[in-house]
Structures are given as C-alpha cells and as structure tokens.
Simulated scan of single mutants.
Amino acid sequence: MNFDVWGEVDLVLRLLAGMTAGIVVGWERTIKQRAAGIRTFGLVGLGTAAAATIFSEPHEADAASRVVQGLLTGIGFLGAGVIVLRKGDEAPRGLTTAAAVWVTAALGCAAGLGDHAIVLSATALAILLLAINHSVERWAGRDAG
C-alpha cells in the first residue's frame, strides 16, 4: 500500500481552508448577534469542502460540477431556515445571513477543489460586504423600514 503524505497534507489544507472561510464569515454574523454563527458557518464550509474534495481530480470535472451544483442548490434549505417574517414586520429578516450561508458553501466548494485564491479573495470580499451596515444602505436610498 502506497501512502501519499503530500496528498493527505493537501486534503487537510483544503478542508481547513473551507472551514476557516466559514469561521471567518460566521464570526462576523456572531458579532452581529445573528441566528447562525461560527459553528454553523464553519460546518457549512467544512462540509462543502469535504464533498467537493471527493471529486477534485482533473479527470472528475463532470462529477465535481454536479456535486457543486447540488451543494449550492441544496444549501438553500439551510439558508431558508434563518429567514423569518415576524408578525407586524413589513420585510423578512435573515436574508443577509441566508446569503452568507450560500456564499460560505461556494467558498467551501472552492476550497475543496483546491482554488485557494478564490477562497481568500472571496472571503475578504464577503466580509467587506457584511461590514456595510444599514446606514450606508439608507444613505444610498433604501427606506428605513
């Protein structure tokens, strides 16, 4: 039996990258006291990285494409779980957290497929977008409601 040490190191780095991206996004959501936080986002990043890694070999591009499509479609159910419309509210709450769950799934997929440049830059851009608060949106013309 031939054990590929560097292959295992690469696998662990892919899983860590997906989980870390999720933790970073989840940290921001935790700071803002949102329904989903560090553990949820870390698990989404880790899980999608693990699933994408299964078919990450170059000759498995079709299978990897189907896995990513399935993950990004299916993760919508988890995102839908954080969206609520409370009695008396005009607009639903949790849309940003749901979108962040979906983005985290995409980050995990990129990590699982070994595209660390996408993981790093997209995580930074996600945090930048999440840092924009409602006062900026109101300044841009959005109603306060």
Score class of each variant (00 low, 15 high):
residue 42 G to S: 07
residue 105 A to R: 01
residue 67 V to D: 04
residue 62 D to H: 11
residue 136 V to G: 08
residue 85 L to V: 12
residue 78 L to G: 05
residue 10 D to R: 15
residue 81 G to K: 03
residue 107 L to Q: 01
residue 9 V to H: 04
residue 88 G to T: 02
residue 84 V to I: 13
residue 65 S to V: 01
residue 140 A to V: 06
residue 84 V to C: 03
residue 93 R to E: 07
residue 74 G to Q: 05
residue 37 G to I: 06
residue 93 R to P: 03
residue 85 L to H: 13
residue 96 T to K: 14
residue 138 R to F: 05
residue 56 S to H: 07
residue 144 A to N: 12
residue 134 H to M: 06
residue 35 A to W: 00
residue 58 P to N: 06
residue 9 V to M: 07
residue 59 H to W: 09
residue 10 D to I: 09
residue 14 R to W: 11
residue 114 G to H: 09
residue 47 G to N: 12
residue 130 L to Y: 00
residue 84 V to L: 14
residue 51 A to D: 02
residue 2 N to S: 12
residue 1 M to L: 08
residue 50 A to Y: 14
residue 89 D to P: 01
residue 140 A to G: 12
residue 32 K to R: 13
residue 94 G to K: 06
residue 65 S to Q: 06
residue 16 L to S: 14
residue 78 L to T: 05
residue 18 G to K: 08
residue 53 T to F: 11
residue 10 D to V: 04
residue 81 G to N: 05
residue 132 I to L: 15
residue 49 A to Y: 08
residue 126 A to G: 01
residue 17 A to T: 12
residue 50 A to R: 04
residue 101 V to P: 00
residue 128 L to S: 09
residue 94 G to S: 05
residue 131 A to V: 05
residue 9 V to I: 15
residue 131 A to P: 01
residue 98 A to L: 06
residue 144 A to M: 02
residue 134 H to F: 06
residue 112 G to P: 01
residue 104 T to V: 03
residue 79 G to K: 10
residue 13 L to H: 04
residue 17 A to S: 15
residue 142 R to E: 07
residue 99 A to L: 02
residue 18 G to T: 03
residue 41 F to E: 06
residue 39 R to C: 11
residue 118 I to F: 00
residue 122 A to Q: 10
residue 127 I to H: 00
residue 145 G to F: 13
residue 102 W to Q: 00
residue 16 L to H: 03
residue 2 N to Y: 13
residue 99 A to E: 01
residue 72 L to Q: 06
residue 4 D to A: 15
residue 47 G to D: 12
residue 108 G to Y: 04
residue 68 V to P: 05
residue 66 R to G: 07
residue 68 V to F: 12
residue 75 I to N: 11
residue 108 G to M: 08
residue 85 L to C: 07
residue 141 G to I: 02
residue 64 A to I: 02
residue 53 T to N: 14
residue 37 G to E: 02
residue 17 A to D: 11
residue 51 A to L: 15
residue 69 Q to I: 03
residue 94 G to E: 00
residue 55 F to W: 12
residue 1 M to P: 12
residue 89 D to G: 02
residue 32 K to S: 13
residue 17 A to Q: 07
residue 14 R to Y: 11
residue 90 E to L: 14
residue 1 M to A: 14
residue 138 R to Y: 06
residue 25 V to W: 04
residue 130 L to K: 00
residue 62 D to K: 12
residue 28 E to G: 07
residue 111 A to V: 05
residue 1 M to R: 07
residue 127 I to S: 03
residue 12 V to T: 13
residue 60 E to A: 12
residue 19 M to Q: 11
residue 113 L to F: 09
residue 83 I to R: 09
residue 30 T to R: 12
residue 122 A to S: 15
residue 8 E to L: 13
residue 143 D to W: 01
residue 29 R to E: 13
residue 100 A to E: 02
residue 61 A to S: 13
residue 21 A to G: 15
residue 112 G to F: 13
residue 15 L to Q: 09
residue 94 G to R: 09
residue 19 M to K: 07
residue 50 A to M: 15
residue 64 A to D: 03
residue 3 F to M: 05
residue 78 L to Q: 04
residue 41 F to L: 09
residue 43 L to M: 15
residue 86 R to A: 13
residue 34 R to V: 01
residue 76 G to T: 09
residue 85 L to M: 12
residue 109 C to E: 09
residue 135 S to A: 15
residue 69 Q to S: 14
residue 23 I to E: 05
residue 29 R to Y: 04
residue 102 W to F: 06
residue 29 R to S: 14
residue 49 A to L: 04
residue 96 T to L: 10
residue 46 L to V: 03
residue 105 A to D: 02
residue 129 L to F: 14
